[in-house]
Design a protein around this nucleic acid. Structure first.
Lengths: 162, 162
DNA sequence: AGCCGATGATTGACACGTCAATAACGTATC
DNA sequence: GATACGTTATTGACGTGTCAATCATCGGCT
């Protein structure tokens, strides 16, 4: 995209160098491309979005394949709002349905339907295979370890600055 | 650190191990979190989205601060459709406007407005600073180099499989 | 009992992105 | 110069995500 960039540096190295910026863009755009590829594969082969997959995975592993809405939100690291919207869409496709629990009728129990369970089981192997092909197989064991290390470091750093 | 894999593996190591899967999730979720943090910062401080920033950057660097729609799409790595929608939104906010070029009136020239130029100039320093704080400063020079290397490897691998 | 603040979830408006269809224009070919 | 084809860009429908507002319920307190 940019070959050289006379970016205003100086004053105590406040801003990234062009090389640092290049790495940043490579990092973020590559991750985005991978996410996108995986999503396309999952959609094409299984008619599921990555978000669908996350929900179905969590429910599949849950006792009785049901879960409180708020627990699901925490498990996925999602906003309640986001989850609510997404569950509405999934319910339209009968992948899940919602029940009012006996103990606290503010909450909602999200339950995996047979359709949802079937969709998930059909999706898991192709999805994992795609992860292997697109990510794991591309990297040497050393690179893989480094990738894990970098992600952990970035996460830890996020915790300190926020 | 852990070398064993208590997951249904075997049959020619077709699927990722749990460790590989953990790294994958860390990788993709961390990138997503960073993207999200940067977007929030840019929105809060400058009322711009990352997509706005990409467009404004490209136009700022273009001769006469104008560019063919298709070139812009290529530069950003976007679909024409995506660009079209986004330009419509940006035009509503008077960050850019469109003109019909003389030579080929199928095309559209996208032009930076004064408002757009001002928004970009106000955004660039805070944005670059945020990139430094959230990404560059978190990593050692070795990790940064490794991140660049990994991204390049993944990109190269994508090229071969697609 | 009645109020009140906290909690769990939903909703509406809007930004963003994808896909498929379409419109408008250029270009070659006969 | 009319037809056919490829290119450039836009549009509409829809899925997805965010933010702020809302609704209903729970639980404690007086």
């Amino acid at each position: 995209m940019t070959m050289d960039t006379p970016v205003p540096q100086r004053r105590g190295r406040r801003l990234p160098t062009t090389e640092e910026l290049r790495v940043w863009r490579d990092y973020i755009e590559t991750a985005e491309t991978l996410r996108q590829q995986l999503a396309a594969q999952l959609q094409r082969d299984c008619s599921l979005s990555p978000a669908d997959y996350v929900v179905l995975l969590a429910l599949s592993e849950a006792p009785e394949q049901r879960m409180r809405s708020s627990q699901l939100a925490d498990a996925a690291g999602w906003t309640r709002s986001r989850l609510s919207h997404h569950l509405a869409r999934m319910q339209r496709r009968t992948l899940i349905h919602r029940e009012e629990p006996a103990d606290d009728s503010r909450g909602a129990d999200v339950v995996l339907t047979p359709t949802g369970a079937q969709a998930f089981h059909g999706a898991t192997v192709p999805h994992l295979r795609a992860v292997r092909e697109i990510f794991v197989d591309a990297l040497t064991p050393e690179q893989l370890a480094a990738a894990g290390d970098i992600a952990a470091t970035l996460r830890a750093h996020l915790g300190t600055t926020r």
